[in-house]
Amino acid sequence: MGRISWCPGCGNFAILRAFEKASQRVIKEGYDIAISSGIGCHGKISDYLNLPSFHVIHGRVPPFLTGLKLANPNLIVVGFSGDGDGLNEGVEHFVHAARRNTDITIILHNNGVFGLTTGQVTATSPKGWKSKSTPYGNPEYPINACQLMLASGATFVARVFTGEQKRMAEIFYRAMKHKGFSFVEVLQPCMSFNNFWDLRKEVFWVEKAESVYEAMRKCEDARACGIFYTEEKETYEDVVWRSMF
């Protein structure tokens, strides 16, 4: 495997370990997994997992996975994206993949910052936050990724915190097993540019909601964690393949 180049203490380690656990469980059940990642610190995870992988370009993980899943529907495909990667550069793909209910899983490494480019604001950075590119404070309001995905039609939406590896592994597992578009936001402190490790004291867990509207309210507080919503709905691949034959 590639030699890990993340900073000591980086939340990416916990994501890596939790995903290893979850993927081993899935593979033991007889499934094949292929992964992809975007550009940023998170994207390096492709090199660190002993799985078929494609480290693609900035923001374009969901369409890549859509094409791969269509070509080989037997694969469980998982994408790793960053808040910059997936909510700045490539946000349209998130919306459309969720809308189609493409059977892919997206794990969003949300550290509230462009890590790899050394600390600028992203779409999830709080208003007023001073970063290298916003020395007078971030003038923009942050986006709530789970709400965006719920509104777009995702059929599995969850949020976890890197401080809780075990729960994270369980949720990754369930997300992969869910048939349809699964979205897991991981609150991941960046030791070098946005260390919110203390958040662990404030994180709280909520139960799954019965409706999208209830789920929207449940995930409104950015510290709320848990599986907010799941739904069984026909997947994009199933519809496309059925129309063919």
Binding site: V56, G67, E92
Partner: peptide, 17 residues
């Protein structure tokens, strides 16, 4: 798909497959 970027990324995904 949603855009030409998505179109070619899907094609690359299928070819990788």
């Amino acid at each position: 798909p949603e855009s030409e970027i998505a179109a070619i990324m899907m094609a690359i995904g299928s070819a990788f497959g």
